[in-house]
Write a protein that binds this DNA or RNA. Structure first.
Length: 523
DNA sequence: TCTGGGGTCCTGCCCCCT
DNA sequence: TCTGAGGGGGCAGGACCC
């Protein structure tokens, strides 16, 4: 998929189409996940510090990723791929290898090209997004072809042309050659694929080690017989958080490690696995990273066991100078069924313990100062809403207003949140600003990017009528409500308080009159 | 004001066992 | 009974990928 996250956001948000869009971590230490092609013109790239991106492209829309949406689109695309062949190997949400031969596609360039073009059309129809297709006789070449095809194209590498094609390319083109390998090769005077071949396998092994050197030589010669492998089991599960501000307080570090251990086990259990080796990861103030690991006698999915192991590992790490990242992982995965009986018997006790932990966290939460990891949307953590914290409105998040309908958060701050009201099928919408605790405004489920088929029935009119559903009407509301008095705040959401619709819409105050956007610049 | 989060694979070292 | 070689597991770090 082309500029996947950013393209999905543009599809979901009509006002962003044709504009620079940057998806990534929005905190002070965020990095760019994906930049739209419009943003790349300014030099913004994946993995770049968000701060640098903002300097390069201050007028872009900066959005937090919405993985639920991307996963949905990804499932759709992977479904189309699986219609082509039983052998589909997903590499990530937006990329996969397909073995066309296993799918019975005749081994001719014409047949492959036809399948590729049809696939691209099907993806566009099913998702509203563009994807690029690389066709070749091996994974490495197919991948190179797909890179060349981007955006929105198809490239086929004819058998027999690989040698000349690869020769002049940079070594960085080859899979497995990153900055360090490229530098090692550069020092040896090797810059291109052809020079890599000329160096010979022996020299590459000497420079890079056995496995890396040998595989690099094969790749440089265009030899790559790695099969397409469907369904690979994960070998580790891990979670990590970078903190907005370095942690120095030892107790806080211990609390965070325990939280991460619990999150890690939750993920482990969701996957129905257990693990034997617990890994603690610590990135210090100076970005130096260390890991400590401990192998248990048998695999576990017991939060208490993982928490305790992580705590023991932490004991051996000096954190006084400041910690910017903490992580907890589990490797040596086994099937859940191998869980030992003792732990299962003790599980009830641990669950009671967990419940107590959570109760404690809520009371501690109120005093939490800066340095929080990118706060999870409060609603995500546990069913109940955490009343001790104000709701956080992440830019890009889906919302629904009792009166104005579906929209997305454009920005928030100083007690207000700015929302653009539009949906994937509407014309670009307009912006309104509300108090962050406006009860008429709620987080919402993402809308599908492609308009769903109208419900089967005699009446074929779609749920959302064509044409913009009445800016004029909105305007009328503006007149009425622009000066609605700000009712006093009630900070005691007692029992029975809910955010359901039907609250007095007069609480919505629209101070921007559709123009001023004090918090984020409108693209 | 640089530098996320989720992974995989490889290497080197140490230690223990055979 | 002692010794040395070699294999394998555990551990830490690093490179790479999306």
């Amino acid at each position: 998929m082309d500029a996947f996250f950013a393209a999905a956001e543009q599809a979901a948000k009509p006002s962003l189409r044709g504009k620079p869009v940057i998806v990534g971590g929005l905190g002070p230490r965020g990095v760019v996940s994906t930049a739209s092609y419009e943003a790349r013109v300014f030099g913004v790239r994946s993995a770049m510090a968000m701060a640098q991106a903002r300097r390069l492209c201050p007028n872009a829309a900066y959005l937090a990723p919405r993985f639920a949406v991307y996963r949905q689109v990804s499932d759709t695309v992977m479904g189309l791929l699986s219609e082509l062949s039983p052998l589909v190997e997903p590499l990530s949400l937006d990329e996969a290898f397909v073995d066309l031969e296993a799918g019975g596609v005749p081994a001719s360039p014409e047949a492959a090209r036809a399948v590729g073009e049809r696939l691209r059309a099907d993806i566009a129809a099913a998702t509203g997004l563009t994807g690029s297709v690389g066709l070749a006789g091996s994974k490495m070449l197919a991948k190179i072809a797909s890179e060349q095809a981007k955006p929105d194209g198809l490239v086929l590498i004819e058998p027999g042309t690989e040698w000349e094609l690869l020769g002049p390319m940079s070594v960085r083109t080859l899979p497995g050659v990153g900055p360090a390998t490229a530098e090692a090769l550069r020092r040896a005077g090797i810059h291109t694929v052809a020079e890599t071949r000329e160096a010979g396998e022996e020299e590459l092994v000497r420079l890079l080690g056995k496995a890396h050197g040998a595989s690099l030589y094969a790749m440089a010669c265009g030899r790559d017989d790695r099969p397409v492998v469907a369904e690979r089991d994960a070998k580790s599960v891990s979670v990590e958080d970078t903190f907005d501000v370095d942690l120095t307080d030892r107790t806080r570090v211990q609390v965070e490690v325990a939280r991460l251990a619990d999150r890690c086990v939750r993920r482990l259990r969701e996957a129905g696995r257990s693990g034997r080796t617990v890994v603690l990861k610590v990135r210090r103030y100076d970005f130096s990273t260390l890991t400590r690991s401990e192998t248990l006698r048998g695999p576990t999915d017991d939060p208490a066991v993982v928490r305790e192991a992580a705590a023991r590992l932490l004991e051996g790490v000096d954190t006084t100078a400041g910690v910017r990242l903490l992580g907890v992982g589990v490797t040596g995965l086994a099937d859940y069924t191998q869980e030992d009986l003792f732990a299962q018997a003790a599980q009830a006790a641990h669950e009671a313990e967990e419940a107590q932990e959570r109760a404690q966290e809520v009371t501690e939460g109120a005093g939490e100062a800066g340095g929080a990891p990118q706060a999870l949307p409060a609603a995500l953590e546990e069913g109940g809403e955490d009343v001790s914290r104000p709701r956080r409105w992440l830019p890009g998040a889906d919302v629904r207003h009792a009166e104005y309908g579906a929209g997305w958060v454009q920005g928030s701050g100083v007690g207000r949140v700015t929302v653009r009201f539009e949906d994937p099928w509407s014309a670009p919408g307009r912006v309104r600003t509300f108090a962050v605790d406006d009860p008429a405004l709620e987080p919402a489920e993402p809308l599908p990017l492609v308009r769903p088929e109208p419900a089967a029935g005699p009446d074929e009119s779609p749920a959302i009528p064509d044409g913009s559903p009445g800016h004029d009407r909105d305007q009328a509301h503006d007149q009425h409500q622009a000066h609605a008095p700000d009712p006093g705040h009630d900070h005691g959401p007692g029992p029975g308080h809910d955010h359901g619709p039907g609250h007095d819409p007069g609480r919505a105050h629209d101070r921007d009159r559709g123009r001023a956007q004090p918090l984020t610049s409108s693209p």
